[in-house]
Amino acid sequence: MSIPVRIVWGREDRILPPEYAEWLHERVPHAELHWIEAAGHLLQEDAPGQLLACLTSGFASA
């Protein structure tokens, strides 16, 4: 059984740089990595609409 995992990361994150997202994505089986452009560490403040859309859309392999 696999559990769907979605990693959502801001391209402009200065606290946890985008390289960390790639590192995590490589290590979590079946994870989907989604980027939010022009957003930093606080996605819910920088891009709330994009974050909501990403979190409420279906998984590719659910």
Rank of each mutant, 00 (worst) to 15 (best):
M1K: 08
M1Y: 11
S2W: 06
S2L: 14
I3A: 06
I3H: 08
I3F: 13
I3T: 15
I3Y: 05
I3C: 07
P4N: 04
P4D: 05
V5P: 01
V5A: 06
R6T: 07
R6D: 08
R6Q: 08
R6N: 10
I7M: 10
I7Y: 07
I7G: 01
V8Y: 07
V8C: 03
V8S: 04
W9Y: 13
G10W: 02
G10R: 00
R11L: 15
E12P: 00
E12G: 03
E12R: 04
E12W: 00
D13R: 00
D13P: 10
D13T: 05
D13N: 02
R14P: 08
R14K: 14
I15L: 12
I15A: 08
I15P: 03
I15F: 02
L16V: 09
L16F: 08
L16A: 15
P17V: 09
P17I: 11
E19P: 10
E19L: 15
E19D: 14
E19F: 15
Y20D: 11
Y20R: 07
Y20K: 08
A21P: 09
E22V: 07
E22Y: 05
E22R: 14
W23P: 05
L24T: 01
L24G: 03
L24C: 07
H25G: 07
H25V: 01
E26G: 06
E26A: 14
R27L: 00
R27F: 04
R27C: 05
R27D: 09
V28W: 08
V28F: 14
H30L: 13
H30P: 00
H30E: 12
A31P: 02
A31H: 03
A31N: 05
A31Q: 07
E32L: 09
L33C: 05
L33P: 01
L33Y: 12
H34C: 12
H34V: 14
W35I: 08
W35A: 02
W35H: 02
I36C: 11
E37Q: 05
E37H: 11
A38H: 13
A38R: 13
A39R: 01
A39V: 10
H41Y: 00
L42C: 12
L42I: 01
L42M: 03
L42E: 13
L43G: 08
Q44M: 13
Q44I: 11
Q44T: 09
Q44D: 07
Q44V: 09
E45G: 04
D46T: 04
D46V: 02
D46F: 00
A47R: 02
P48Q: 06
P48C: 10
P48D: 12
P48I: 10
G49I: 06
Q50N: 00
Q50C: 03
Q50G: 10
Q50R: 13
Q50P: 04
Q50H: 13
Q50K: 07
L51F: 11
L51N: 02
L51H: 05
L52V: 14
L52F: 02
A53E: 15
C54A: 14
L55P: 04
L55V: 10
T56M: 03
T56Y: 04
S57Y: 01
S57N: 10
S57A: 11
S57E: 15
G58R: 09
G58W: 01
F59L: 12
A60R: 09
A60F: 15
A60D: 10
A60L: 13
S61H: 12
S61T: 04
S61E: 06
S61F: 11
A62D: 09
A62N: 02
A62C: 12
